[in-house]
Structures are given as structure tokens and as C-alpha cells.
């Protein structure tokens, strides 16, 4: 199902253009995993708070205990969440009612309900 080579093979048509079904008129039964890479930028707001506090207090950490703690907690929570979702995806557990599905789950669903022939 290579789209471009199929279109090249068609040549230069003359009016009126007769309809030809070059590719089957249906969607593919799978999605590629390319679009699933989420950015790992996290805790930017907390980091900016830490920077602001450190600059105010001449880089003395004792003055910014609260900000630093919240920043570190944010990062550990993020890592934990990432680990959990990764494990779930590896197991292939489907969560009902989830809005953003990872590609593996999408493929699984598509395989469960294939195109009608």
C-alpha cells in the first residue's frame, strides 16, 4: 500500500478523468506508533519557582526548602506515573472511557473490530 508510487504509475490523465480505484477505498487496519512520543518536559513551573527563589537568596538552598521540595516531589511523581503507564501499556490493559489511547491499545481495538469485507 505505497501511496506515492501508485500515484506516479497513473501517468498524466486527460479530461474527463475516468475513475480508477488505485488503492482500496478503506482505512488501514492499524496506526503507526510514531505519533505516540510524548514530550518529557515536566515540572517547568516548579523549576522556575526554584530558580526565582535561588536567585533572590543568593543560591542559599536553606531559604528555599519549600520550593525545592515541591519540585522534587513533582519529578518523582512524574517518574512514578510514567512507570505505571508504561507497565500498563506493556500488559495491554484497556481502560474503558480513556480519551487518549496509546497506539498499542488502538491497534488492539482495531484488531478486535476489523473492517467489514
Amino acid at each position: 500500500m505505497r501511496i506515492l508510487p501508485a500515484l506516479w504509475a497513473r501517468g498524466n490523465p486527460k479530461e474527463p478523468v475516468p475513475f480508477q480505484e488505485i488503492l482500496p477505498l478503506k482505512l488501514r487496519p492499524f496506526v503507526s506508533g510514531k505519533g505516540d512520543k510524548t514530550s518529557n518536559v515536566c515540572c517547568l513551573y516548579e523549576m522556575s519557582l526554584v530558580f526565582g527563589c535561588l536567585k533572590e537568596n543568593e543560591f542559599k538552598e536553606s531559604a528555599c526548602g519549600r520550593e525545592i521540595k515541591s519540585f522534587q516531589e513533582c519529578f518523582t511523581n512524574y517518574n512514578k506515573q510514567k512507570y505505571i503507564t508504561k507497565e500498563r501499556e506493556a500488559k495491554g490493559i484497556l481502560t474503558p472511557g480513556e480519551k487518549r489511547l496509546p497506539y498499542r491499545q488502538l491497534n488492539k481495538l482495531l484488531r478486535m473490530y476489523p473492517n467489514e469485507k
Partner: peptide, 8 residues
């Protein structure tokens, strides 16, 4: 700090 959002 300006580059912080480049992380990917």
C-alpha cells in the same frame, strides 16, 4: 533557564 523547555 531559558532553554528548559528544550528538554525532550
Amino acid at each position: 533557564r531559558a532553554y528548559a523547555h528544550y528538554r525532550w
